[in-house]
């Protein structure tokens, strides 16, 4: 992670068109961008496309970034918008609902085929990812940013361009839905689920 001063200098250089500065600057952000894109899109291919699209948008707009929010928040916002655009395009392309995709074996995960894949922990993880992918977009975005990425309410409100009250409501309803879905898998989540 770059310190604030290094980040500021890289932003200035990237804003003047320095491509190597841009790549260095965004290298520190690509992990969180990919994580958000993966959880929002549910598969590696679309996540890669969204991340690429977000990078191009950032590259085009980096010269206009004036520090009105933290750079990470700004990057999150553009990444999330790319993902939401992709989800809208996906909806327009096909009438297949996410539920139907999940029914047909759609499983949002980044794991490669490893021997551990079928372990209990991997199965729990897979079920959780599936449950998150099944959330409505607005709830999913809030849950991804809060419970996976660990963003603050204020930061999430800036990223999703809405108020903190709405964010809290989406997170609360999203968590409730996740509990409801996972409680239907007592063999995997039976420890506490009622």
């Amino acid at each position: 992670m770059q310190d604030a001063q290094t980040e500021r200098k890289l932003i200035e250089r990237a804003g003047r068109g320095d491509q190597s500065a841009f790549e260095e600057l965004l290298s520190a952000q690509e992990g969180r961008m990919y994580a958000v894109a993966l959880r929002m899109c549910g598969n590696r291919e679309d996540a890669q496309d969204c991340m690429q699209e977000a990078m191009i948008r950032i590259f085009r707009a980096i010269g206009t970034f004036k520090g009105q929010s933290s750079f990470a928040t700004w990057v999150y916002r553009i990444t999330m918008n790319s993902c939401l655009d992709e989800l809208r395009r996906r909806k327009a392309r096909t009438s297949t609902s996410l539920d139907a995709m999940i029914e047909n074996g759609f499983a949002p995960t980044d794991e490669n085929d490893t021997p551990e894949r079928h372990s209990l922990q991997s199965e729990q993880r897979r079920m959780l990812e599936k449950a998150i992918a099944g959330l409505p977009e607005d709830m999913r975005a809030a849950i991804v940013l809060r419970d996976i990425q660990g963003c603050s309410y204020d930061e999430i409100a800036q990223v999703l361009e809405t108020n903190v009250g709405t964010i809290k409501s989406r997170i609360s309803r999203g968590r409730e839905r996740l509990r409801a879905v996972l409680s239907q898998q007592p063999e995997l989540f039976g420890r506490h689920m009622v």
Partner: peptide, 24 residues
Amino acid sequence: NEAMDVVTRCAELNEGLTVPLECQ
């Protein structure tokens, strides 16, 4: 317990997650 469990598991989802080289 159930609520804490879900949130904890969510927080662990990124563990070991790396950006694929082809994506980079």
